Amino acid sequence: MPESEPWEYSLHIPNDVRAVTVSRRTLRLILTVHGLITLVDVAELLAAELVANAVRHTKGPAALRVRWSPPGTLRIGAWDADPSPPQPPQTLAAVLEAEDGRGLALVRACADVWGWQPLARDGSRGKFVWCEVGAA
């Protein structure tokens, strides 16, 4: 049974492709411990896409943030140091024709809602790309 109290975790990651695997496994553990095993598969996919974009398209560090808000919303987000907005494919044809860039299309398809916001913290600029899934 999912917890009725809110919680949040952050995982700071280096710019390294191995961070995607570390993020997925960490997220799986967090969700399992909190009784949200039914969300693990979709959450892992979403987190992997967000972190992969952060690592692949930027040169600096990144972070994964996971937040649970009762009664049933899981927010997954990735911060990176590049303030440029994400560029998801706009049509199915664009997704099918693209050689890369399908990650945000998967996020749009699998999440209930997604978005991004520019961030400035401690003199650093960047963005936070997030999505939410509900525990039905």
Rank of each mutant, 00 (worst) to 15 (best):
Q87H: 08
R25T: 08
W79V: 04
P14G: 11
P2C: 06
V51R: 07
S124C: 15
T21Y: 13
T91F: 06
R108W: 08
N15R: 13
R125C: 15
L46M: 08
W116P: 02
S69V: 00
A19N: 12
E3G: 11
A43R: 01
A47N: 03
E5C: 09
W114G: 02
G134K: 06
I30E: 07
G35F: 02
G123C: 12
P70R: 08
N15A: 13
I30M: 08
G35W: 03
V66Y: 02
A120E: 11
W7K: 00
M1Q: 10
R28L: 07
G60C: 02
G115E: 12
L96Q: 11
G115C: 12
R102A: 14
P14K: 14
L29E: 14
L74V: 07
V95G: 01
R125S: 15
E97M: 05
V113A: 14
L92A: 12
A93K: 13
T21F: 10
I30G: 01
V129F: 04
R102C: 13
C110R: 08
S4M: 13
L46S: 02
C131R: 07
S23Q: 05
P88Q: 05
G60N: 04
T26R: 02
D122C: 06
A105L: 13
R56M: 12
A109N: 02
E3A: 03
I30D: 03
A54N: 07
P89R: 05
P6R: 08
K127W: 11
W114K: 07
D112I: 06
R108E: 08
L29A: 14
S23I: 00
L36W: 01
Y9R: 11
Y9C: 05
R65F: 05
P86Q: 06
E8T: 06
Q87S: 04
P70F: 02
P70S: 09
S69L: 07
L29M: 09
P88H: 04
V22M: 02
A111M: 11
W79L: 11
V17K: 15
P83N: 06
A54V: 07
W79D: 07
V55S: 06
D100S: 14
L36V: 00
A93H: 10
N53Y: 05
V129R: 06
V42M: 01
A136M: 04
A111D: 04
P2Q: 05
A19I: 10
M1F: 02
K59A: 11
E44K: 09
P85S: 08
P70V: 05
R102N: 13
T26S: 10
A78N: 04
